[in-house]
């Protein structure tokens, strides 16, 4: 049987992690191809709804990453985001969704190697966890809505 290849969505901030991931590429460091990077202006912009939508559309794991504390391009975006993550993570755990599927990290523009490590480790861990079974039901309904053409979200 073919090994399960997890789909991972990475929500990253423009100023640190996106540049960091770029550095990984220009430094010719190899890392797992399972990750799809989505660029945001700031971690403060990464709404928890986007994380939910990613899972509903078939992601098995999500990486959320931005500037280290005190390094935010907009001074405090990552601090606000951190507070939101703390609450969001606990709520997901309370509702029965494995919080290990969402990986939060700080990766600066100079940490190309850290990005590669982060992705490799995330892929390894989520491969162990298997497909996101909590969302299988929801994925089917999402497909159904899409077939009807009624899903605009």
């Amino acid at each position: 049987m073919k090994e399960f290849e997890p789909k991972i969505v990475a929500f990253v901030c423009n100023w640190c992690t996106y540049a960091g991931a770029d550095l990984t590429g220009t430094s010719r460091i190899h890392y797992a191809p399972n990750v799809r990077v989505v660029r945001f202006p700031c971690t403060g912009r990464i709404d928890y709804n986007l994380i939910i939508k990613a899972f509903e559309r078939g992601a098995d794991g999500v990486i959320v990453s931005g500037c280290h504390p005190n390094d935010c391009h907009y001074t405090s975006g990552n601090f606000h985001a951190r507070r939101r993550w703390i609450v969001f993570r606990t709520l997901l755990e309370y509702i029965g969704i494995d919080p290990r599927r969402i990986i939060f990290s700080w990766v600066s523009a100079a940490e190309g190697a850290k990005w590669a490590d982060l992705v490799n480790k995330a892929v390894r861990e989520i491969r162990e966890l298997g497909p996101a079974k909590e969302f299988i039901n929801m994925k089917q309904w999402y497909e159904f809505e899409k077939a009807l053409g009624g899903f605009r979200g």
């Binding site: 504390p69 005190n70 405090s76 601090f79 606000h80 951190r82 507070r83 939101r84 993550w85 703390i86 609450v87 993570r89 919080p99 990986i103 939060f104 990290s105 700080w106 982060l118």
Partner: peptide, 14 residues
């Protein structure tokens, strides 16, 4: 949630 402290706990962040 619209305020923050610099030393908010972040044990889960890598």
């Amino acid at each position: 949630l619209s305020t923050f402290r610099v030393d908010d706990k972040e044990t889960f962040i890598r």
